[in-house]
Design a protein around this nucleic acid. Structure first.
Lengths: 346, 346
DNA sequence: AGTTTATTTTAAACCGATTGCATAATTACC
DNA sequence: GGTAATTATGCAATCGGTTTAAAATAAACT
């Protein structure tokens, strides 16, 4: 063990009090600017590093942000986390990360652990069966901020960071219609989650705008797993009048569905054009390459984290419901190129 | 803000000193067992939660583990992290996660940040161009433990957590040979990294054991990216005598190579059997499904973290070079099924 | 009973930064 | 020059566990 440099060392060296050193390092207005320069210079020179634990103890803040996500092991979530880590690290915050495994019960347990760990705030993407935010009441009562991202729920005192899923769903569907599809099926997830409910809404709106009537026999509610994709394909192969377009609410399911459809003898995009959602790396592996919605994971992580930190530093107020909407983009690839040669496919 | 329960509250309630309460809660041997029961009971009843920061401050430990990985955004790494998070969380440790982006310079910067953040120990998977561990000397000097996982480097005082890459490489190659391949190409990464050097070694050994001479024209050194897969395929298509088997050191590259090979008119597995490495979800998306080596990411994360925590608690010594080897498994799928019908394909 | 030894418990210092209040130094103003 | 108003710095308490050394209590042995 080597001796750590403390503010006392700096104070002694400069013949000042620790209080002055502390204030100078925190840029307190009551300190003379020359003194500040002197102190920060000396601190630099001596290789001083503030001891977070002393500071946290005194300040009653932990500089730790809790993160609760459904699962860590998806491509999308790992990019979100990468973004969060970047921002948190720069701001000298720690992340305490946990998974709900899509279960509200685990989400409740995690929230409790986070609370007991005295995190300063929470970044949450909701589990699929979460119906309300009551398990976060301990946080609300104590005035601890919560930012929801991606899978959100409107709630006073909660900033939401999302993309416009309605618009994205609309664009995906409209693109299929432009390619000449007339019977577009939509495969979605648990519509208690905004991401799926909104994409569904966008799908319906797009059909409406083309004067097509939306019928429930072209809707499939699933968990969007690989297995679900296979089952949807089997289902389609048994239909008397199968769809000619498919909008699946995530890439994993879209991709497995395409594979299965091909085994059932469907040509993609010939018999069936397919759009996914997320722009996961899968989408470039499947043949044909998948048309999908690109979705800024890293940026979402960065913005959610930065907003929380700004709030904690008093730079931002989470007053009335406050929503940050990020951009998305439709990426057109082979899986929807019905009109190649005939018309330019976007 | 509500009042937090402290050991002083418990002490007052039971007419004991805070010192006794502290010792009892830490199961100190000098405390009478009846007193312990009394105290832990009361603590439970009052909803006491230890304040980490006070504890860390006094103990000069941070209960934080630093994690440095090449990239967060791969499937494999996200499963590793999920495992780490699980174990660390249970043991009341925080993770401070950062990415080196495959660059030793960033790795050095991250190590410095970690050191300044006073992490208790480090979990590291090395960047591709790291040549030595000198940038961790500050840790070694201070007696801070480092555990390397997956991409490791033998070093005194460093536990390594790995799989047997030689054996895995051997099995992958032997499997291709069993399927009747006679010209097996190997596509590998930066062989400064054990994972690639060892897989290459296994490949060579397998050829040797079959009495085949290994020639360098069937070796390709790449970065194992998607693009590299495409280029290897182009390269192969230009060869006068192309290989009939391909062992690629990761799935991402294997998968893009298969796609490209098919475009060049090769039948997989007919003209070319392919084995990947990692059992990434990609491997089930590509057609034909990819034969690959399954690789226990989550377990690797759990074991590395648990070992570090055990060491920090004095339950484990990292004395002489200490290596933990996990199991792997060859998963046979369509991409190598040359002998279907003829012989049972494993 | 008197000592020695072992077992429990406590008092008090400590970890290092922060902050309310007091004091000192400087400037402003009559 | 003297007093008020600013501005800059210091004192000392505080956050809540942990730990050393010492004290108090209990048990063991002549």
């Amino acid at each position: 063990m080597e001796k750590e440099i403390t503010i006392y060392d700096i104070a002694r060296e400069l013949n000042l009090s620790p209080a002055t050193v502390s204030r100078a390092l925190n840029d307190h207005p009551a300190i003379n600017s020359n003194t500040k320069i002197l102190i920060t210079g000396k601190a630099q020179e001596m290789g001083y590093q503030s001891n977070r634990f002393a500071s946290n103890l005194r300040r009653q803040r932990t500089n730790t942000i809790g993160v609760i996500v459904p699962r860590l092991d998806s491509y999308f979530m790992s990019t979100v986390l990468a973004g969060m880590e970047k921002v948190a690290n720069q701001a000298n915050y720690n992340l305490l990360i946990s998974q709900s495994f899509e279960s509200v019960r685990k989400e409740m347990a995690n929230a409790k652990t986070m609370f007991n760990s005295r995190v300063d705030g929470l970044l949450v993407s909701l589990a699929s069966d979460t119906e309300n935010l009551e398990h976060f009441n301990t946080f609300f009562r104590k005035g601890l901020p919560i930012i929801l991202f991606d899978r959100v729920m409107p709630q006073k005192n909660c900033t939401n960071v999302v993309i416009d899923n309605v618009k994205a769903g609309y664009e995906a569907t409209a693109h299929l219609l432009e390619q000449g599809c007339r019977r577009v099926m939509h495969v979605t997830g648990d519509i208690r989650r905004n991401v799926y409910a909104d994409r569904l809404r966008g799908y319906k709106l797009a059909l409406l705008d083309q004067g097509l009537t939306q019928t429930d026999d072209l809707l499939r509610f699933t968990n969007l797993t690989r297995q679900d994709g296979i089952e949807v394909a089997a289902d389609i192969s048994r239909m008397a009048l199968p769809p000619d377009g498919l909008f699946v609410a995530n890439d994993l399911c879209a991709v497995s569905c395409i594979s299965a459809l091909k085994k059932h003898g469907f040509a993609v995009p010939g018999d069936m054009a397919v759009v996914g959602f997320n722009n996961d790396p899968y989408s470039l592996v499947i043949e044909p390459n998948l048309t999908t919605i690109d979705y800024p994971g890293q940026e979402m992580g960065e913005i959610a984290t930065q907003s929380l930190i700004n709030y904690l530093n008093g730079l931002l107020r989470i007053g009335t419901t406050n929503t940050i909407v990020l951009h998305h983009e439709l990426i057109v690839r082979e899986s929807t190129q019905k009109l190649v040669g005939a018309e330019e496919g976007n």
